[in-house]
């Protein structure tokens, strides 16, 4: 899929309340290009609820329902049931939540909706923090990352949401990144044509939350894939396939860059480098990443 073939329509309007360099609007533009205007979106408390802007105006040119933090998937289930009853089955239902509303607070509603086989798309844009409320730690925050609630760096590893979803055996699940819009477009397009619950997770490097310069948003997404901190994969019919650079890393055709390359540009990991390099902790992060890929190779190669 070449960039030229992507549709021109822009359901995300200009002049919204997103920060400059925001990965959420970047991802949402591509996602809504793939889904088209026949989409109903459910947004729980997350950055996107703010990006919509203030009453009586909204920046998104599609119907949206705002709902409580834990209820994105439950709300989408209700909308899907109502549309089905009215015979409007050609309308896409999209639940669009952040990592706080997916990994932590919205997990039980999501698990329930996927288990019931609701026909909807759930997209989690993962910026690894609660950025809307001021950078608190979430279940997706990686180890050693600074947040306002983990001042000396987080002491625990993040959890693997993709594998929790795979345990539900949905018809489709995928992981994408904002730095690969063609790949993201292809995955959303594919999810659109499948019946049943679909889960897509998008890595969204957040400039104010991760403490990097706002022009590096896309670079951070690319580096995350090249270092192996993030993987691109598709899960279909109980089979998991890696794609893009992640596939080459899995098959050991290219060597991933050291994870330090990704960490050193982010102010949230600054305490690992200044005033003195914390070799022990850097090695621990690298070892965890290597072990992760070793596990992937054992399971999926």
């Amino acid at each position: 899929m070449a960039l030229k073939n992507l549709p021109r329509e822009e359901p995300v309007m200009q002049g919204n309340a997103a920060c400059p360099g925001c990965p959420a609007t970047l991802a949402l533009r591509t996602v809504l290009k793939a889904l088209g205007k026949k989409t109903v979106m459910v947004v729980p408390a997350c950055c996107t609820a703010v990006i919509q802007s203030l009453y009586p105006y909204t920046s998104f040119d599609i119907p949206i329902m705002n709902i409580a933090f834990e209820a994105a998937a439950a709300g989408a289930s209700g909308i899907e049931a109502a549309l089905r009853k009215q015979g409007k089955e050609d309308i896409n239902v999209l639940a669009w939540a952040g990592d706080g509303g997916t990994y932590d607070i919205g997990l039980q509603a999501l698990s329930g909706a996927v288990e019931r086989g609701t026909n909807f798309i759930y997209i989690c844009y993962n910026n690894q923090i609660y950025s809307n409320t001021g950078i608190q730690r979430s279940g997706a925050t990686p180890i050693s990352a600074w947040t306002t609630t983990t001042v000396g760096g987080k002491t625990e590893f993040h959890k693997e949401m993709g594998e929790i979803i795979q345990a539900h055996h949905p018809p489709y699940a995928a992981q994408a990144s904002i730095s690969e819009p063609e790949d993201l477009y292809k995955k959303v397009k594919k999810a659109k044509d499948i019946k049943g619950p679909k889960y897509i997770e998008i890595l969204a490097p957040c400039p104010p939350g991760w403490r990097f310069s706002m022009d590096k948003t896309v670079d951070m997404g690319k580096l995350a894939i090249e270092t192996g901190a993030w993987a691109l994969w598709e899960y279909e019919n109980d089979e998991l396939v890696f794609n893009g650079k992640s596939k080459l890393i899995l098959e050991e055709k290219i060597k991933p860059k050291p994870i330090e390359e990704w960490l050193k540009y982010q102010g949230r990991f600054k305490h690992l480098f200044v005033p003195k390099r914390n070799e022990e902790q850097l090695k621990r992060i690298q070892d965890h990443n290597d072990a992760q890929w070793k596990r992937y190779r054992k399971k999926y190669l």
């Binding site: 309007m13 002049g15 309340a17 802007s53 203030l54 105006y57 909204t58 920046s59």
Partner: peptide, 14 residues
């Protein structure tokens, strides 16, 4: 109603 309607520049000229 408490429904918001779409508008370009909902936050003004950003």
């Amino acid at each position: 109603s408490s429904i918001s309607y779409p508008k370009e520049g909902a936050m003004g000229k950003t």
